[in-house]
C-alpha cells in the first residue's frame, strides 16, 4: 500500500510539473488585425439584427473579434482552441471578407446558407458551452435570407 501511495505521489508530481511546463507553450497573437476596411460590415449592408446574430453565434471563430473565455489562457486548452479558431478564420473571416475575390465571396455566402440550413454550423461543441449561440429557425432564416439577397446584388456571372 505504501508503495502504491508513493507511485501516486510521484505521478501527481510529474503531472503537476507537466501542467506547469505546458503553460510555457507560447500562445498565438490574438485578434491581431483589427476590423478594417475589409470587414463585411464596411463593404456591404448588414442590418443590425443580422449583425447581432453573427456576433453571438459566428464571430468567435469567424472574425478578428474573438471573445476568449478565461480557460483559453490555460494550456493545453489554449492550444486546442487556437487550432479551432485559426481553422475557422481561415475558412471564413467576416472581418476580411472584402479581401476575397468576388466569386469566393459569393460562394462563401452560399456555403453559409448550406451550413446553417443543414445545422452544421454553429458547431455543436461550441453551442454546448455557448448557449446563446444556438439559433432558432427564425434566426436561421433571417441570416439565410440576408445572405441570398446580398448574393443577388453581387455583380457576378458564374
Amino acid at each position: 500500500m505504501a508503495k502504491q501511495k508513493k507511485t501516486l505521489t510521484t505521478t501527481l508530481i510529474v503531472l503537476l510539473l507537466f501542467v506547469i511546463a505546458v503553460q510555457f507553450i507560447p500562445k498565438a497573437e490574438r485578434n491581431d488585425s483589427a476590423r478594417g476596411a475589409k470587414a463585411i460590415t464596411k463593404q456591404y449592408d448588414v442590418p443590425e439584427k443580422v449583425q447581432s446574430i453573427l456576433q453571438k453565434a459566428c464571430f468567435d471563430c469567424h472574425s478578428n473579434r474573438t471573445e476568449y473565455p478565461w480557460y483559453s489562457n490555460i494550456q493545453p486548452f489554449a492550444k486546442f482552441m487556437e487550432g479551432h479558431i485559426l481553422r475557422g478564420k481561415d475558412e471564413l473571416n467576416f472581418d476580411e471578407f472584402g479581401s476575397y475575390a468576388i466569386k469566393k465571396q459569393y460562394n462563401k455566402l452560399r456555403s453559409l446558407e448550406n451550413q446553417l440550413e443543414n445545422e452544421a454550423m454553429p458547431l455543436r461543441s461550441y453551442t454546448l458551452i455557448h448557449h446563446n449561440a444556438r439559433l432558432s429557425n427564425e434566426e436561421i432564416s433571417l441570416l439565410t435570407n440576408w445572405s441570398k439577397a446580398l448574393r443577388n446584388k453581387m455583380d457576378i456571372k458564374l
Binding site: 505546458v22 507553450i25 494550456q75 493545453p76 486548452f77 492550444k79 486546442f80 487556437e82 487550432g83 485559426l86 481553422r87 478564420k89 481561415d90 473571416n93 476580411e96 472584402g98 479581401s99 476575397y100 475575390a101 468576388i102 465571396q105 455583380d155
Partner: peptide
Amino acid sequence: ACNSKSDRTAKQDHNMEN
C-alpha cells in the same frame, strides 16, 4: 493537443475584388 499544429496560413490573397 500540443502536437496538432495548424499549418494553415491565415492570410489569403488580396486585390482580387470587383
